[in-house]
Computed example of a mutant assay.
Amino acid sequence: MRAPIGNFEHARPAPDCLDELTAPVADAVRAWSADVPAEQLIYVDTDPEIADTAAFVEHYGGELLEQSANCVIVAGKRGGETTLAACLVMSHTRVDVNGAVRRQLGVRKASFAAMDVATGESRMEYGGITPIGLPAGWPLLVDSAVVDAEWVLIGSGRRRGKLIVPGKAFAGLPGAVAVEGLGV
Rank of each mutant, 00 (worst) to 15 (best):
V184K: 03
V74D: 00
V101D: 03
G6P: 08
A28C: 10
A14R: 11
V36D: 05
V36E: 09
V44T: 10
N70M: 08
T130W: 07
V179G: 02
E49K: 14
T82L: 04
R94H: 05
P15W: 13
V165E: 14
P15L: 11
P15G: 11
D116M: 01
L140R: 12
S68P: 01
S111C: 01
W138F: 14
D27N: 13
P24S: 00
K168C: 14
F170Y: 13
V57E: 11
V57H: 09
F112C: 05
D27S: 13
A110H: 03
A86M: 02
C17M: 10
P166Y: 10
Y60E: 07
T83E: 11
L141R: 07
A113I: 01
P48H: 12
I154N: 09
M90H: 00
R158V: 04
L173Y: 12
A34W: 00
A145Q: 13
Y43Q: 04
I164G: 13
A14V: 11
H10T: 15
A55Y: 09
L134Q: 14
Q40L: 00
A114D: 15
A171E: 14
L153V: 09
G79W: 07
A86E: 03
K77V: 06
M115Y: 12
R123F: 01
D47L: 11
A28Q: 06
V179Q: 04
L41V: 12
A3M: 10
S111P: 01
W138T: 07
F112N: 00
T53H: 10
K168T: 14
Q104A: 14
S33F: 08
D45V: 01
A54S: 15
T93A: 05
D116L: 03
G62W: 13
W151C: 09
L182V: 06
L88K: 05
S144L: 11
V25D: 05
R2Q: 14
P135Y: 14
M124V: 06
N7S: 15
L18G: 10
E81N: 13
A118E: 08
M115G: 10
A34D: 07
A110S: 02
V147E: 15
N98A: 01
A169D: 13
L134P: 14
A28F: 01
E20V: 01
A136E: 15
C71P: 03
G167L: 14
K77W: 06
L153K: 08
A118T: 01
T22L: 08
E9V: 02
A136W: 12
N98D: 05
E63K: 11
G79Y: 06
V179A: 04
M115V: 15
T22R: 03
K162M: 11
A3P: 13
E121A: 10
G175M: 10
D148S: 12
E150P: 12
Y126W: 15
H92D: 05
P37F: 06
P48L: 10
L41G: 07
A85Y: 00
Y60P: 08
M90P: 03
S91I: 01
D96W: 03
G76S: 07
R12Y: 13
A34C: 13
